[in-house]
Each structure stands twice: as C-alpha cells, then as structure tokens.
C-alpha cells in the first residue's frame, strides 16, 4: 500500500480513538448529571459521537490494512456505512420517544433550590 495506506490507517485509527474518548465522556456525564432530561443530552452524545464516528473511522481504516483484496475491503466498508446510517436514524428517534413518554407521565425536571448544598 505504501504511503497512502499509512495515511488512511492513521486517520481511521485516530477517529476510532476519538470515538472512544467521546464514549468515556458521555458515560461520565450520564453518571454525574442530576436529572433525566440532562442525562438525555449526554446519552445522545454517546450514541452519535461514540457509535457513528468510530464506525465511519473503521470504514476508513479498512482501506489501509495491508494484505486484503479490494473485494474484501468493500465487503467490510459497505455494511459499516449501512450500520452507521441505521444508528444515525434510530438513536434520535428512540431518545425522543422515551423523552415524550417521560414528559407525558409527569416526570418533573430538576430545579436547584437557592442555598442548597450541591451533592
């Protein structure tokens, strides 16, 4: 592959690593936020930044891995793009459905009382 393969490997691997960092930050936010509606924010970051970006990054990484034929590379890359687009459609839809059910069932948002000690 030569230089082009090396560049593709570094770009794809960096995107996978950044996706892992997104995932870790989203998991920390899910544990630290005080309320359901604020946790929903962190969870959506974890679903898009932690799942869609690493899949696209691994679709780039496959074209830099040595020792594969072109048809094998395409057999890797095309289903990865299908999975990425499926998550891109279904993750906001499911989050919106759960948020709507929570709001209609009367879940109150968190409201900080002045003078209260932060837990």
């Amino acid at each position: 592959m030569g230089l082009g393969g090396l560049v593709l490997t570094i770009i794809g691997g960096a995107i996978i690593f950044i996706g892992g960092l997104f995932d870790l930050v989203a998991a920390l936010g899910v544990n630290k936020f005080p309320d359901f509606y604020t946790r929903l924010h962190a969870v959506t970051i974890g679903a898009i930044g932690g799942a869609v970006y690493p899949i696209i990054g691994s679709a780039i990484l496959v074209f830099g891995v040595p020792g594969l034929s072109l048809s094998a590379r395409l057999s890797f890359a095309l289903p990865m793009l299908v999975i990425a687009s499926l998550i891109l459609i279904t993750a906001p839809t499911g989050s919106h459905a759960v948020a709507r059910a929570a709001y209609r069932s009367g879940l109150k948002p968190y409201r900080r009382i002045p003078g209260e000690v932060k837990k």
Binding site: A26, F36, V43, A47, G50, S58
Partner: peptide, 26 residues
Amino acid sequence: PTVFDSTISIDALCYDVSAFMVILSV
C-alpha cells in the same frame, strides 16, 4: 431512580456495543 434513566442508559450501551462489534470485526 426511574425506569427512563435505565432505559436510555441501556439503549446507549447497545449502540456502543454495536460499534465495538464493528471494531472487533476489523
């Protein structure tokens, strides 16, 4: 505390496991 918290957390867990399976297939 509520069922909704567990639901969205497990939902994001499933999406991230899906991405992890793709990375392990490479």
